[in-house]
Computed example of a mutant assay.
Amino acid sequence: MQVASHSDAVANLYSHHHGWLVGLLRRKLGNVDNADDLAQDTFTRLLTARSEELIREPRAYLTTIASRLTAQYFRRLALERAYLDALAGMPEETVPSPEARMLVVEALTAISRVLDGLTPRVREIFLLAQLDGLTYAEIAAQFDMSVNAVQKSMIRAFQHCYTAVYSTE
Rank of each mutant, 00 (worst) to 15 (best):
A129M: 01
A9L: 01
V3M: 12
A110G: 11
D33F: 06
E92T: 02
P58S: 12
N34K: 07
A157C: 05
R59G: 05
E53T: 09
L69S: 05
M1W: 04
G133T: 04
S5R: 07
D144Y: 09
C161I: 11
L13F: 10
V114P: 00
A39V: 02
S146N: 00
H16Q: 12
S51Q: 10
L62I: 01
I155D: 11
V165H: 09
L87N: 06
L134F: 07
S15E: 13
A9Q: 02
V105S: 14
E93V: 12
P96I: 11
T135V: 05
V32K: 14
W20S: 06
A141R: 11
D132T: 08
L54G: 03
F158K: 04
A140D: 01
A164G: 10
L118R: 15
R101V: 11
N34T: 08
L77W: 09
T163I: 04
L127E: 15
I65E: 09
S97V: 03
K152R: 09
R76F: 04
K152Y: 08
I111M: 13
L62E: 00
D116L: 08
Q2H: 10
I139P: 00
F143V: 03
L134E: 08
N34W: 03
L24V: 13
A88T: 01
L108M: 10
R101Q: 15
Q2R: 15
